[in-house]
Design a protein around this nucleic acid. Structure first.
Lengths: 157, 157
DNA sequence: CACAATTCAGTTGCGCACAACTAAATGGCG
DNA sequence: CGCCATTTAGTTGTGCGCAACTGAATTGTG
């Protein structure tokens, strides 16, 4: 849980820089490629992520989508309204629980899945890493995410 | 440069999902921890990244900051204006080239570096991975970033 | 030298991310 | 039953990220 206490702050500063620079750059590089691949589909990258979970599950309450994608209602509500305006999903209050809103893809939204079929292959090709390395990368990312979410970081230095 | 052509689209879809979910989640998990650590300093995470390069280099034109951080003027201009309003940097047109704007930290901006000294150590501790694994992670991230940036992705599927 | 192309910072507009808040529905408890 | 805490979406405000554009300064070329 702790880093080598013998290492100088100066060196940690450098590693910290490298990690956060790299993660930021990679995240935006992925976003840039997805943006190009998704342009014809009329989807942004976050909208694509939402459609992915809907394609898989058929329908979900907003709450569940947020749990899957680590997003809150402040992000999802306007995003889902745009997807609905584009005719890709419908939103309706659940009859059993009037607080909950069920989101389900329309026929048009389901049909879009076919047109998106080549996106993953083309993205993985652009990433240019063997699948094995991508699996390693994913594993490391998941481990840091779990650790960071679990870390009770205190505001005051 | 290509993925195994024998793998089904369905399987690639799943791996693609996992990679992009993981990268997104990790990126935001880092952002969340940095946000807490930087709150007292009055910095956002992107502002911290800008200060890191300024602490290292003393002064830089906007263009160079953008190259380091992979950001364009549409992002940097308002961000730098906020840093200037906070008294951390000064911006002035370069005398040699009136198009260029040189950004340099103020005394207050330089002093902030001391207060930020514990940030990297605390972040790396929160990440909970051995430094060796973090180095591996960084290497993989840099490799995909280079590949993604180099990939000439065609808009039309 | 004149003029076109390029470079650089800035602005506008849109969408995402998150904090803080509101409003409505639900569930639990005395 | 009546009331209060919790859950769930939605709204507002701020900042980031990027595309597309503007305007000014510089560079290259005939």
């Amino acid at each position: 849980m702790s880093t080598d206490p013998g290492m100088a702050d100066e060196d940690l500063l450098r590693l910290d820089q490298q990690i956060c620079f790299s993660l930021n750059a990679a995240s935006r590089a992925f976003g840039g490629v997805y943006r190009v691949l998704l342009r014809d589909l009329g989807l942004t990258y976050p909208q694509y992520l939402v459609m992915l979970v809907l394609w898989e599950d058929g329908e979900l309450p907003v709450k569940r989508i947020g749990e899957r994608l680590r997003l809150d209602s402040g992000t999802l509500s306007p995003l889902l309204k745009r997807l609905e305006a584009a005719g890709l999903v419908r939103r309706e209050r659940s009859p059993e629980d009037e607080r909950s809103v069920t989101v389900r893809p329309t026929a048009e939204g389901i049909a879009l899945r076919e047109r998106a079929g080549q996106v993953p292959r083309r993205l993985l090709a652009a990433a240019g890493l063997p699948l094995e390395d991508l699996a390693t990368l994913r594993g490391l990312l998941d481990r840091v995410t779990v650790a960071l979410d679990a870390a009770e970081v205190e505001p005051a230095p």
